[in-house]
């Protein structure tokens, strides 16, 4: 549905994107991650046809959105700017955009959308009086007024207070259930982790990682296990055994619990070693690494930006 091939963009001789490539399939919620200034918005602008690539291409439905006006009816966008007119009411804004997209049953559609984003009681108020969170919600309603197949969201909850962030995130989550393809530009790892099925991490002008969230966690994070022992007398012995294993990189004791970081995937071997040495193990569980840990690992190891 969205295909980016060898995309390069330079501004005044400075490379902003360098040969990036990824693909977003139909119905996928794709998270495009990266620190501020990494080139996420530039990538999105190229996909949307607002900027021309220096080389390579970015296609949606196999076409360049910039040169195919009609195709843009199938795409919804919410950029950092909500695209709302402060002098118009909430209803007026949605009415204007619904006319631009040629929607016939405008009144019904707008009413339903205002209900969806919880702004029905403010429909006649000028957007200039709205809080940032309300504007964002209305911006989201504006972005989906024409039932787009693909939705591009650029930092949808950026700059919002926690309550508004949660409201916007819930809306995105609801939209994701409607089997729309969503391209989410964000530096909010928590948001991406909760919503996205696949992600790409952009850093230093290139894609540093591109996979499903779970796969990335497994690929980029070292396995960490938490082992709970039954007998306190075993803790010291178990710790010595674990330290002696060459595939154990770290081992920390906390009461009956020992947290073990492995250099490689050897979860069954580690348990065998303990049990064979007479250690009574009550529980052993793998600790999930957050996307934030993975992200920071990638960014740290890939060096600075260009």
């Amino acid at each position: 549905m969205i295909g980016v091939q060898n995309l390069t963009k330079t501004f005044n001789g400075k490379t902003v994107l360098d040969g990036i490539r990824f693909e977003v399939k139909e119905g996928e919620i794709f998270g495009f991650l990266g620190p501020n200034g990494a080139g996420k918005t530039t990538t999105m602008r190229i996909i949307l046809g607002l900027l021309k690539p220096t080389s390579g291409n970015a296609l949606v439905f196999g076409e360049d959105l910039g040169s195919c006006d009609k195709l843009r009816r199938r795409v919804g966008i919410l950029l950092e700017n909500d695209g709302l007119y402060e002098g118009l009411s909430a209803y007026g804004n949605l009415d204007y955009y619904s006319q631009l997209y040629g929607i016939s049953d405008r009144e019904e559609k707008i009413k339903n959308l205002l209900d969806f984003v919880g702004l029905s009681d403010r429909k006649d108020d000028k957007v200039g009086k709205f809080s940032k969170g309300m504007k964002r919600k209305l911006g989201l309603a504006r972005a989906i007024i024409h039932d787009p197949e693909v939705l591009f969201l650029d930092e949808p909850s950026s700059g919002l207070d926690p309550e508004a962030q949660r409201m916007v995130r819930d809306l995105i989550f609801q939209l994701s259930k409607e089997k729309r393809t969503i391209f989410l530009n964000s530096h909010d790892l928590d948001e991406v982790q909760k919503v996205c099925s696949k992600i790409a991490i952009l850093h230093g002008c290139t894609i540093k990682a591109y996979d499903k969230v779970e796969n990335l966690r497994n690929t980029f994070s070292k396995p960490i296990f938490e082992i709970t022992l039954i007998d306190t007398a075993d803790v010291r012995i178990a710790s010595d055994i674990l330290h002696s294993l060459d595939y154990v990189s770290d081992c920390e004791e906390d009461g009956l619990r020992i947290t073990v970081t492995l250099k490689e995937e050897k979860s069954s071997t580690i348990l065998n070693e303990l049990v064979n040495n007479g250690i009574k193990v009550e529980e052993a569980k793998r600790l999930a690494k957050s996307l934030e840990d993975v992200y920071l690992d990638i960014v740290k190891h890939s060096g600075g930006e260009r």
Binding site: L48, G49, L50, L65, D69, K70, R72, R73, V75, I77, L79, E80, N81, D82, G83, L84, Y85, E86, Y97, L100, Y101, G102, R142
Partner: peptide, 14 residues
């Protein structure tokens, strides 16, 4: 200046 033009340019209008 307000940036709304960017959203408008993404509508089906040329």
């Amino acid at each position: 200046r307000e940036g709304n033009i960017e959203t408008l340019l993404c509508t089906p209008l040329s």
